[in-house]
Simulated scan of single mutants.
Amino acid sequence: MTIEHQFNMLVREIRKECVGNGPREITTRFAGSWAISEMKGNLTNIEKFMIESREGHQMVHEARTTLVKRIYEDSAKVKKLEELVRAKLVSIYADINIDLDIAMTVYVFDKDIKVN
């Protein structure tokens, strides 16, 4: 099993635990010290209903981007990622395109990730 696949499984597990459902599809690429994860199928049925209004759209976007950053304030979750890639997590950048239901998270580690 590749490190990308293991990373995807771990991200899905963490998101499912914290949000109630994980992304339908995750693709992760490693570039130096970055892990770049693209996630499709993130929104819950309630969120899909909420985004029908402009206010709901903004609320879901803000909640999703804030929530992702908060998830990784939990040292136990961070430790799992760090053990897998054998590097310390330095920063996270997250955004979601609500209309396309595609989220991107960039995990920045303190050293290059070995993929072989």
Results as ranks from 00 to 15, higher is better:
Ile36Trp: 14
Lys88Gln: 10
Glu25Thr: 12
Leu81Trp: 11
Lys77His: 07
Ala103Gly: 15
Leu100Tyr: 09
Val108Ser: 00
Tyr93Met: 08
Ser91Pro: 05
Lys114Tyr: 01
Ser75Glu: 14
Ser91Arg: 13
Lys114Gly: 03
Phe30Gly: 04
Gln6Ser: 14
Trp34Ile: 04
Val60Leu: 07
Ala63Ile: 15
Val78Cys: 03
Ala94Phe: 12
Asp110Ala: 13
Arg24Thr: 11
Glu38Ile: 15
His5Thr: 10
Ser53Gly: 06
Arg86Ser: 13
Asn21Gly: 10
Ile26Trp: 08
Thr65Asp: 05
Asp101Thr: 09
Ile113Thr: 06
Met104Trp: 10
His5Tyr: 07
Ile14Gln: 07
Gly20Ala: 03
Lys69Thr: 13
Trp34Val: 02
Thr28Cys: 12
Leu67Ser: 15
Ile92Ala: 03
Asp112Pro: 03
Ile51Ala: 09
Lys79Ser: 03
Val115Met: 11
Tyr93Glu: 08
Pro23Asp: 04
Ile14Asn: 13
Asn21Cys: 06
Asn116Cys: 05
His5Phe: 15
Phe30Thr: 04
Glu52Lys: 14
Phe109His: 04
Leu100Trp: 05
Asp95Trp: 04
Lys79Gly: 02
Thr66Asn: 04
Cys18Asp: 03
Asn45Lys: 15
Val11Ile: 06
Asp74Tyr: 15
Glu73Gly: 01
Glu4Cys: 02
Leu10Val: 00
Trp34Gln: 08
Ile26Asn: 12
Pro23Asn: 01
Ser91Leu: 09
Arg54Pro: 03
Ile51Cys: 05
Arg70Thr: 15
Ile113Trp: 01
Asp95Pro: 00
Val90Asn: 07
Ile51Thr: 10
Val90Trp: 11
Ile14Arg: 02
Val108Lys: 03
His57Arg: 05
Glu73Gln: 14
Gly56Met: 05
Thr65Phe: 01
Leu67Cys: 03
Phe30Met: 02
Arg86Pro: 13
Ile102Gln: 01
Asp101His: 14
Glu13Ile: 02
Leu100Gln: 13
Ser33Cys: 10
Thr27Gly: 07
Glu52His: 14
Glu13Met: 04
Val68Tyr: 12
Leu89Met: 09
Glu25Tyr: 14
Cys18Leu: 11
Asp101Cys: 06
Glu47Leu: 07
Ile96Val: 11
Leu43Asp: 08
Asn116Glu: 09
Glu25Leu: 11
Val115Thr: 15
Gly32Trp: 12
Phe49Ala: 07
Leu81Val: 07
Ile3His: 08
Glu38Trp: 13
Glu17Leu: 09
Arg64Ile: 04
